[in-house]
């Protein structure tokens, strides 16, 4: 046997390998052209219909809890943009995908390859068809940006970019937790859906509409309000609720990665369990 030690693999190599794995996914998906085109359009239509319904009814009411269409579009678009980017990147950890890999045995195949496990899972379920949703979400954000009464500064842009980054990490963390739970039980999948998809819908609208205790729960217990609601409030020049200071609007890039780091710690526990039971 060779004598080479197990030095950490160079980051550049891992990145290249990740993109090679994504490339394989993309080529595989493009084999079925019609199915791909239909799926891509349908993916956008599902989100599109939901927002369209909101846009169509808003004129009858004038505003949503004091928020104009443009302002809601900014909030809604940012949440959707972050969620779909996350969905693209973390698809391999999504509970249904991961449990399918475990059941089919391809998860053991990952373990038999000399590459860090997360790189392989990240590279395993890249749903290219969701790109249409990215475009749609970006369009909604752009509409929002054009309609709100804000003198845009570099700080605002950085704040919102950080907000998206934080949301990607936050929801990515939820996906990792959900996927890890399937090492124990598959029944937990629907429970995680409340957190992931429910959380996404929750932060798509201004938190002020949910009533005091719900808003406080999602500020201090589950820090979802920091993700996009506070940054957008700040950009719109409105004070944060509950007497929170202005800098709290910039915490999204901290909150998200913290959850993600905790999620990966849990992931390692799950993988250790897999090594104990083999299923």
């Amino acid at each position: 046997m060779g004598r080479q030690g197990s030095r950490p693999l160079p980051a550049l190599y891992l990145l290249r390998l990740y993109f090679r794995l994504l490339g394989a996914q993309i080529r595989s998906q493009l084999v079925y052209r019609t199915a791909f085109a239909l799926d891509a359009l349908a993916a956008a239509l599902v989100t599109g219909a939901e927002f369209a319904a909101f846009v169509l009814v808003l004129p009858r009411f004038g505003a949503l809890g004091g928020w104009t269409l443009g302002e809601v579009a900014l909030l809604y678009g940012l949440a959707e943009l972050a969620f779909v980017l996350m969905d693209l990147g973390f698809g391999g950890f999504d509970a249904p995908n991961l449990s399918a890999h475990v059941r089919s045995g391809s998860f053991s195949t990952f373990l038999l390859r000399p590459v860090p496990l997360p790189v392989q899972v990240f590279g395993s379920d890249f749903a290219l068809r969701r790109l249409t949703r990215v475009v749609l979400a970006a369009g909604i954000v752009a509409y929002g940006v054009s309609r709100v009464d804000v003198a845009w500064s570099v700080g605002d842009v950085v704040l919102l970019a950080g907000s998206v980054l934080g949301m990607v990490a936050f929801f990515g963390g939820l996906f990792v937790v959900g996927g890890t739970l399937t090492f124990w039980t598959v029944e937990s999948v629907e429970a995680m859906n409340v957190l992931t998809y429910g959380g996404r819908t929750l932060i798509s609208y201004p938190m002020s509409i949910y009533g005091e205790w719900l808003r406080k729960t999602f500020t201090f217990l589950i820090p979802a309000a920091f993700l996009s609601y506070f940054p957008v409030l700040h950009v719109l020049g409105r004070p944060l609720p509950d007497g929170l200071p202005g800098w709290a609007a910039g915490l999204s890039p901290l909150v998200g990665p913290l959850l993600l780091a905790a999620a990966f710690a849990f992931w390692r526990v799950g993988v250790r369990r897999y090594h104990g039971t083999g299923s």
């Binding site: 080479q4 197990s6 394989a24 080529r27 998906q29 195949t109 373990l111 038999l112």
Partner: peptide, 27 residues
């Protein structure tokens, strides 16, 4: 030290493939 170890193994499982399902074998 999983990574170092599995680099020296080859494994074939009759029931399942390690190949990418929709890609040419060469790829």
């Amino acid at each position: 030290d999983r990574r170092r170890y599995v680099g020296r193994l080859g494994a074939v499982f009759g029931q399942r493939t390690t190949l990418w399902w929709d890609l040419p074998v060469r790829d």
